[in-house]
């Protein structure tokens, strides 16, 4: 298991204010929130790759992850953890970023399998993205090809401990250094890349707007950005395809 702090490309998260400062009641409230958060985690496991096959055993009768208060959740809006299970192809990575931006804060990302760490055995492949933490702030990596259910559970326990102690707040990093992440995304998806979420406005709303939120890449985004519209689905399906004869 790799703690993100040991990987140099991502800045370490903000230190929590130490005890003895501020309102005592607020501190108690913070403690309570951290406790509750760590005890009821809904996880959205995006089956990006092979690692997804070890999650059903981890969730079902034999290893029974629900003991820890972790349950699968079907929608990103209600999930706390985004589990990226395995190699991330470019096509999938777009969907992962959209999913991640839809999730409500606080949110945690776990990269499972070696492929999310550095590309794994697909480091040569033209189709897969190599390092997940270039595109999203990753709270924890669980390495292995693929990690056993015990490893997954032990990783999640560590995440619980981190949340409980208030150490796992890398989601703030996405707002603080949005330019860095957007730059990597643009490098892979082209300069016209834009997500439907207004991350910069959210950063202001959460009070996480920092000196690195804006930069050359967000400037590029503003140049071509189309105003956010109410979402309308267009699938490009032919009307009444009928029988495919």
């Amino acid at each position: 298991m790799t703690d993100l702090r040991t990987i140099p490309v991502v800045a370490a998260g903000e230190e929590r204010p130490s005890g003895g400062q501020g309102n005592l009641l607020a501190r108690v409230f913070d403690e309570l929130t951290a406790f509750c958060r760590s005890r009821s985690l809904f996880m959205l496991h995006y089956c990006t790759g092979c690692g997804a096959v070890e999650l059903p055993p981890a969730m079902t009768s034999r290893f029974d992850m629900e003991r820890l208060g972790i349950q699968p959740m079907v929608t990103p809006r209600q999930a706390d953890i985004l589990l990226v299970t395995g190699y991330v192809s470019t096509k999938t990575l777009k969907r992962i970023i959209l999913t991640y931006e839809q999730m409500n804060s606080p949110k945690y990302v776990i990269g499972i399998c070696s492929c999310t760490v550095n590309g794994g055995m697909y480091w040569q492949s033209y189709a897969t993205a190599k390092k997940l933490n270039d595109y999203l702030p990753v709270d924890m990596y669980i390495a292995g090809c693929m990690p056993r259910p015990e490893a997954v559970i032990s990783g999640l326990r560590e995440l619980i401990a981190n949340i409980r102690a208030g150490r796992s707040d890398y989601w703030r990093d996405y707002y603080r250094r949005y330019d860095h992440y957007l730059g990597n995304q643009q490098r892979l998806f082209g300069e016209n890349w834009q997500t439907p979420t207004d991350v910069i406005a959210e950063a202001r709303h959460y009070g996480l707007f920092g000196p690195e939120t804006l930069g050359e890449h967000t400037a590029l985004l503003e140049q071509h950005q189309t105003p956010l519209q109410p979402f309308e689905m267009r699938l490009g399906l032919k009307q009444d395809k009928g029988s495919s004869s």
């Binding site: 192809s89 999938t92 699938l235 009444d240």
Partner: peptide, 28 residues
Amino acid sequence: IEGNYALKVRLHGDEVTAARADGGYLHR
């Protein structure tokens, strides 16, 4: 456990009138 695969469907009421499979999410 179906995996990383998409199916786009067009519905009329609750009946599917057209569908299109979308793969390539697992292409390595």
